[in-house]
Amino acid sequence: MLKVRDLGVSRGGITILEGINLTLASGAALVLTGPNGIGKTTLLRTIAGLQLAASGTALLPPEGLAYAGHADGLKATLTVAENLTFWARVFGQDGIGAALTAMDLDALADRPAQNLSAGQKRRLGLARLLVTGRRLWLLDEPTVSLDAASVRLFAEAVRSHLAAGGAALMASHIDLGLGGAATTLDLAPYRSRLPEPGQGGGFDEAFA
């Protein structure tokens, strides 16, 4: 479903990871690990197409992917149901009931998003994945600010997504208990050598 060949990613004009090869078949999950600043977010953003790759290619499924970054993309003045309905319609889907139930948001459906706690916002952000109808999920630290029960809910959602033929690439520090479906990739060996002083960040960098 996802094929990454010899990918190099850069941040601020400096290549931070290079030579990454990975494939993700349907039904599989890959967990990216590594210390802070190694480039997990940058790698996910590059694969999502939000950034240009420094080298190599990432081959995505033709229908695209669902990306969940650090920010949940919620509008504070819209209710939970309005937020979710908007994303469902952007992705050409309808019906948010299953997603609300899966993330235990039924009781909150008519609350404005600004009144939710951090963990509830995160659950809403993750419920958005369920209404995209995309098979490939890219998740950046999906469990931040979730309590133990919510993490279990989310792990259950990922498991049923994988069982339905989906795939997930995520950066995470905690074990979701996905069992055999998940493999772990430590990014430390792909760290690129420190650049020569003065490399990168030139005037034309934005236009590359």
Partner: peptide, 10 residues
Amino acid sequence: DGSLDLLATA
């Protein structure tokens, strides 16, 4: 609020 990133991948 991150919507722009999500819309760009939509």
